[in-house]
């Protein structure tokens, strides 16, 4: 079954209560044909386990890596992905859209 938003936010709460490091990634803005709308969440714990999505699967790997940094540092950061990025060929959006993602630690 698909993970729904409420299921993944509940999972994040449970991870936090169990003392795990948790980060929440949220799609803030999209341009063009981005597959997931603003407000979509992805949650990550310190083990690198994640639920949800912020794109059709193109940038989740990069977001999880950044989220692990945010769990260590505690400082929120803004990520931007798009075909215009120099990283386009590694973690760009194949659909041609652009997205901005806010990653914050759950404290």
């Amino acid at each position: 079954m698909l993970d729904r938003d409420e299921d993944l936010l509940k999972a994040a709460e449970n991870w936090g209560k169990a003392g795990k490091g948790v980060a929440l990634a949220t799609v803030i803005e999209t341009w063009g044909s981005a597959p997931r709308p603003a407000g979509s969440n992805l949650v990550v714990n310190g083990d690198g386990t994640f639920l949800g999505s912020v794109s059709g699967g193109c940038v989740e790997g990069a977001v999880v890596t950044e989220a692990l940094d945010v769990i260590s540092s505690g400082t929120p950061r803004m990520l931007e992905f798009g075909v215009a990025d120099e990283t386009a060929w590694t973690v760009g959006l194949s659909c041609g859209g652009r997205i901005r993602i806010f990653v914050e630690k759950v404290v």
Binding site: L9, E13, G16
Partner: peptide
């Protein structure tokens, strides 16, 4: 996000 905020979101959604 504070864990308490996350918890409150989940409580409201459950209701």
């Amino acid at each position: 996000m504070k864990l308490a905020t996350l918890s409150a979101i989940n409580t409201e959604r459950a209701a």
